[in-house]
Amino acid sequence: MITFDDVVKVYPGGGTAVDHVSLEVPTGKTTVFVGPSGCGKTTSLRMINRMISPTSGRVLIDGEDVAGQDEALLRRGIGYVIQHAGLFPHRTVLDNVATVPVLLGKTRREARAAALGLLERVGLAPEFAQRYPAQLSGGQQQRVGVARALAADPPIMLMDEPFSAVDPVVREGLHREFLRLQKDLGKTIAMVTHDIDEAIKLGDLVVIFRQGGIVAQIGTPQELLSDPADEFVAEFVGRDRGLRSLSFDTAAELPVKPVPAELVVDEAGRPLGWRTGADDVRPTGGTFTSADTLRLVADLAILSPVGIAVRVDADGKADGITPHHDLADYLAARRG
């Protein structure tokens, strides 16, 4: 666990970058620092591995103040990923990944062998090993950056805007792989982003900073969406936060009505469409299962030609329907 204990950072010019921040980054979880530029999120992150020293207050890792630790040794024990990957251009991909193990005293041969395995882990084919960073795309460089940070298997990872320098399609792929990797590895991750959607998607816990280095709210993505602390947070998480907050609940407890005769099904009971006239059958627009999110149910109800979402069981057989006003009643009841 990483603990910020009343941390302040004032720059000599007089600007306050971080203003009395106290928070905890729980072990094995992803905690995302998010906020507008100049809110102190990156400064806070960089105080964890002593790239920046606090003016006052303490940063502790598992109860131990980082200020008392040897800088280089501390950093070798913490994975570090930065925006443009910051790969060493004069070293091959393999040697970039092998950097920290070599610093820790492994032979180059051992470190390279382990590095090869890591490349595969982050989704890079072995033929990339002998290339140089300039020969890779931005997304590939970022994968190498993650592999380099993972090479010494550190319990903690710091990621400073790791996905912001790549295009949206590549970012989407990197997000998926990040979530897959983190599910396997369970690292304690502190990540900085300015993108609230990214924070909500990747974070177990989200810390929202506001201008002047003040923490506006700390909570799970769901808490931030459903219960923003103030106007600033509500504005920052976005206008459609109500709809997005539905992504965190499944339809397991959503009541359904029996399937009516207007729903045309095939011999296996799978829905084909809605009968809206004698010869007129219109597509349902999709179905949901009880494991899907309420957001999908809302989406289906809106898209449906008759305003009704269709639930199916594991075999795809229609087993219930939810008209949009039933969904609205359910949501209203749940809130109250």
Partner: peptide
């Protein structure tokens, strides 16, 4: 950025 990364990895 590269120099920052060099310091950051220890």
């Amino acid at each position: 950025q590269v120099v920052d990364a060099a310091r950051g990895v220890g």
